[in-house]
Amino acid sequence: MAEDVVRLFLRLPENEALEYLPGQFLELLLPEGKTRAYSLASRPERSHNLELHIRLVPGGLFSDQLLTSIKEGALLRFRGPLGSFFLRQLSLRPILLIAGGTGFAPIKAIIEETIALGNSRPIHLYWGVRSKANLYLNSVIKEWESTQPHLSFTPVLSEPGSEGEWNGATGFVHEAVLQDHADLSAFDVYVAGPPQLIESVKKSFPAQGLDDQRLFFDAFSYAPG
Results as ranks from 00 to 15, higher is better:
H53Y: 10
H53V: 10
I54A: 00
I54S: 00
R55Y: 03
R55Q: 09
L56H: 05
L56W: 00
V57Q: 08
V57G: 04
P58A: 06
P58E: 02
G59D: 12
G59C: 04
G59P: 05
L61E: 09
L61W: 01
F62H: 05
D64T: 15
Q65W: 08
Q65L: 10
L66A: 09
L66P: 06
L66K: 04
L66S: 03
L66I: 01
L66H: 12
L67D: 00
T68Y: 08
S69C: 13
S69R: 14
S69I: 15
S69N: 13
I70N: 00
K71Q: 09
K71N: 04
G73D: 11
G73M: 11
L75P: 04
L75M: 13
L76E: 00
R77I: 04
F78A: 02
F78W: 01
F78S: 02
R79Y: 00
P81C: 08
L82Q: 02
L82K: 05
L82D: 01
G83T: 02
G83W: 00
G83R: 10
F85G: 06
F86D: 09
F86N: 08
L87D: 03
L87Q: 03
Q89W: 04
L90H: 07
S91E: 09
L92K: 14
L92D: 14
R93S: 11
P94S: 12
P94G: 09
P94V: 03
I95Y: 02
I95G: 02
I95D: 03
L96V: 06
I98E: 10
A99E: 12
G101D: 06
G101Q: 09
G101F: 03
T102E: 05
G103D: 03
P106L: 08
P106T: 12
P106Y: 12
I107E: 11
K108R: 15
K108G: 14
A109W: 01
A109K: 02
I111D: 00
E112Y: 03
E112M: 06
E112V: 01
E113V: 06
E113C: 11
T114P: 01
T114K: 08
I115M: 02
I115V: 09
I115H: 03
A116R: 15
A116N: 04
A116T: 05
L117Q: 13
L117S: 13
N119C: 07
R121Y: 02
P122A: 13
I123N: 07
I123L: 13
H124I: 07
L125N: 10
L125H: 07
W127A: 11
W127R: 13
G128Y: 08
G128N: 09
V129W: 04
R130C: 11
R130Y: 02
S131F: 00
K132T: 12
K132F: 07
N134V: 06
N134Q: 15
L135K: 11
Y136N: 14
Y136M: 12
L137K: 15
N138Y: 10
N138T: 05
N138I: 09
S139M: 08
V140L: 14
E143N: 05
W144R: 04
W144P: 08
W144I: 05
W144E: 06
E145Y: 01
E145K: 13
E145S: 12
T147F: 01
T147N: 00
T147C: 02
Q148Y: 08
H150Y: 14
L151M: 09
L151Q: 01
